[in-house]
Design a protein around this nucleic acid. Structure first.
Lengths: 175, 175, 175, 175
DNA sequence: AATGAATGAGCTTTCATTCAT
DNA sequence: CATGAATGAAAGCTCATTCAT
């Protein structure tokens, strides 16, 4: 490992291998710390937005926005998340799977509540829509990461976010 | 040497490691063979469907159907594909990335042609819609694989397929 | 292994790996067979020459000639001898070392008898002169083999043989 | 990890295999390092002697002396050189062959200059005499190494050196 | 006799972890 | 705290030998 971030600032810190074991019991613990930080930020943001917004679109839109912001501010962290955690089954311990499932559950909950209040279609399982929504986000960011695609500016972030949301909510069919 | 039976045929699934090197130069070549077989089947099926069907929905629907069929018939291959190839960056050589990109290109092409003939919305980049569609599929199957979720029967396959297609084409918003 | 020679003719025979074990107990036995054939031919030729010639120069000259003939007629065998037997310590079993030492002993004997009859200088150990003579031959042929140097015709063979003999007997110093 | 002491210094001779890969990319690189060290010492010594001495006999004599010194001081290195590098074709990469050829070229050069100034006989190709000289040395040391022959003291070193040089320069024929 | 797929032991290489400094 | 050399276990790979056909 060569890089890490401290809490508030985007500081690239390069540590020697051995030092990792001064701070973390082993590689898995280091991983868990990164993972926990990632999910922690994500979950607390989701909770905030759940209170702040009422519309499902706003809640999910905030999620997309969060990913875009993180990608811009801390590309390395998103990179680790996508390649090492999200896309690698090698590191997928049951412990980490829980985060994933919890994440899915939260989104499913948002969607299910949308279905209950009739702002989201009822003829498709909330779980299935969750897969579609998350898959859209994940593939988007995976591709960005794999291709080292740079996101420049608010305009592009907005275009990407609204593309995902538009298709997810309105569908690929033309109006 | 261990053996296992898949649905219809006696298939040797596990061999002494050393034997791999009788058939493949190294682990990567073995991988490439599996990858190539997978993509080969996928690509030839896509070409067929491109001739067979005219509607974008039918073409993409066939794709979802293909994944579901493969998942039922050859769960191991799909498992390898999802966990080792699709979800693991460790094995993502530039060579293999090409397949992925080619896959995306083909889907983008289908969607772009749909846009040209006005059966797919024009206000979102074809590339972005590709991400969304593929992400939906991938997350779906990742989850199936990770949870060892069994697909039982035509009915369920149909339900899953139409869920994905419905949301992708009509959107999550109720009618 | 891919090639082998039968007794009298230069016949390249290509056999499949497995078959070797039909004729030889194991790799070492195959090796020993090749080695024994080589040394057998060499030793019987030396015995003949010992009777045929009286001069040390003729005896050693015949030896050089034999190597040159073999190199021309059976380059592969000489190649195996040089690279696998003479130049490789990996295959040097005590058994094979015996042949080598016996070979040295025979040459030392020739030289020692030369010293006794005063046709070879007495102020250098016969053993040391043996090393020098054999080293000259071996390096010569090693180089030929390593560089895949082709020997064409009697003239060149004669030139090489007389070079070795001239320097060995008369020294590098000009007359 | 085992340790051993050579004549004057504490030298770590045997390390855990894995550690090699901390210092060298792979086995071949380790080899190259040893080989390069050996040839480096040899070549720099030859250059020095080329300036220091004028007579061919002194230049070549210094070479023999160098081998004898190395054999006494660093028997392991000479052992590796003889058995793994000089006598083994398995490790003879084109890269390593270059060193060998360069070595031969340097000696050939010394001899050719001797011929030009008429201190070395002209009726034998310099290349051929190079083979003879090198073969003498190599076989000498191969035998020492293979038989684990101990060299004790200056006297014996001198005897060996002068034997090689005497025969090479004056020939095996008595005066 | 002949083939080449299969085996397994041993060598090569990697990598998480420890430890001396 | 920091470093990176050292360790050891496990993964990757080779190759002599066996075996079913």
């Amino acid at each position: 490992m060569t890089k890490s971030y401290n809490n508030n600032k985007l500081t690239v810190v390069s540590v020697e291998v051995g030092l990792v074991y001064h701070y973390f019991k082993n590689k898995a613990y280091l991983f868990d710390a990164i993972v926990a930080e990632w999910w922690g930020g994500l979950f607390s943001m989701m909770e905030e937005c759940d209170k702040k917004y009422t519309l499902v679109e706003d809640k999910l839109g905030a999620l997309v926005g969060y990913f875009l912001d993180q990608y811009e501010k801390r590309p390395d962290l998103v990179h680790v998340f996508i390649t090492e955690i999200s896309r690698s089954s090698a590191n997928l311990t049951p412990e980490r799977l829980k985060f994933f499932k919890s994440f899915m559950d939260r989104i499913e909950d948002i969607i299910a509540r949308g279905q209950a209040e009739n702002t989201v279609r009822n003829d498709v399982k909330a779980r299935y829509m969750t897969y579609i929504f998350l898959g859209a986000i994940e593939t988007f960011f995976s591709t960005l990461v794999l291709e080292n695609y740079p996101i420049k500016g608010k305009a592009q972030k907005h275009r990407i976010a609204s593309s995902i949301l538009t298709v997810f909510f309105n569908g690929a069919r033309p109006i």
